[in-house]
């Protein structure tokens, strides 16, 4: 059993998937009336549990960017859950999520900001963060599958790009986030049962933070991740899809929007593979 828990493949796939399913379900139940909004917090919770298993619980205050990622995610989880439990929605929730993401990005990127060139990736990440905080909130809250599909696609592209670029722990965390999101999507297929509130948008900020470490502290060709950004359009696209107005329609819509979101992620992964020659680290 211990060997299984220490298997990187299990840590990046089956375990976070099960944790995601369990955490989403438990938070849905424990949240009472706010349970539907609180459920996506299970994704961040599963992410943190896998982080603790793969990297360990970092010291506080954390000396490294990885430690800052953990504590930023933990802070985000508490913030998102608090906002959802308090019933905070709309612009106020968006501002809170944006503030959290900007602070976390600044905290993580701080030591790397020694030149104008280093500030450029941060500017791009802040712009993506703003989209996550504000534009995603424009998506219908009761259509969480589209936003979860975006999260799945972004975390997949970050995870595999990190794997290609020899950053194994970031790869495992990115893939674990993908699997945990898969757990959330399972709860919302064929029927969308939950809401995508502040907790959901906090989860959507996690691949942005992972990408920040990849871009600023590794030799990974993180610029290829820009190719995955069209996945952000999955939400608006979902509303325009000619989905049949039948009981089967929403289930088909979720599958379609997930495929559409994952396509740009695959393009980003392919570009990263081509740029690095595809040689993997022997670890």
């Amino acid at each position: 059993m211990t060997d299984l828990l220490h298997d990187p493949f299990v840590q990046s796939s089956l375990l976070p998937l099960l944790l995601g399913v369990a955490a989403v379900g438990l938070l849905r139940l424990a949240g009472g009336q706010s349970g539907r909004s609180l459920a996506p917090a299970g994704i961040a919770l599963a992410f943190l549990l896998i982080f603790a298993l793969v990297v360990g619980v970092p010291a506080f205050p954390p000396p490294s960017s990885m430690g800052k990622l953990f504590w930023s995610a933990a802070g985000g989880l508490v913030l998102g859950a608090s906002l959802d439990l308090a019933g905070v929605k709309g612009r106020a929730a968006s501002l809170a999520v944006a503030g959290w993401l900007a602070l976390a990005l600044g905290w993580i990127a701080g030591p790397a900001l020694d030149s104008v060139a280093a500030a450029l990736p941060l500017a791009v990440l802040l712009a993506v963060g703003a989209w996550v905080a504000f534009a995603d909130s424009a998506a219908s809250e009761d259509r969480p599958a589209a936003s979860a599909a975006v999260l799945l696609a972004l975390s997949l592209s970050v995870g595999v790009t990190a794997l290609i670029g020899s950053s194994a722990s970031l790869a495992q965390l990115g893939l674990a986030l993908t699997a945990a999101t898969g757990g959330f999507l399972l709860w919302n297929w064929p029927t969308e049962r939950h809401l995508w509130g502040a907790s959901g948008r906090i989860a959507l900020g996690l691949p942005v933070l992972l990408a920040a470490i990849l871009a600023l502290y590794t030799q990974v060709q993180a610029a290829t991740l820009l190719l995955a950004l069209p996945a952000l359009a999955a939400g608006p696209l979902r509303r325009r899809l000619p989905i049949p107005d039948t009981g089967f329609g929403p289930a088909l819509g979720t599958v379609a929007v997930t495929v559409l979101a994952v396509l740009p992620a695959l393009v980003a992964i392919g570009a990263s593979w081509l740029l690095t020659g595809g040689e993997a680290s022997p670890y």
């Binding site: 490294s64 960017s65 990885m66 670029g165 020899s166 950053s167 194994a168 722990s169 970031l170 470490i213 502290y217 590794t218 030799q219 040689e279 993997a280 680290s281 022997p282 670890y283």
Partner: peptide, 12 residues
């Protein structure tokens, strides 16, 4: 091993 050294330089 260049690729392993790259990994050893990473945040891992």
């Amino acid at each position: 091993h260049a690729k392993r050294d790259e990994h050893l330089r990473s945040p891992d």
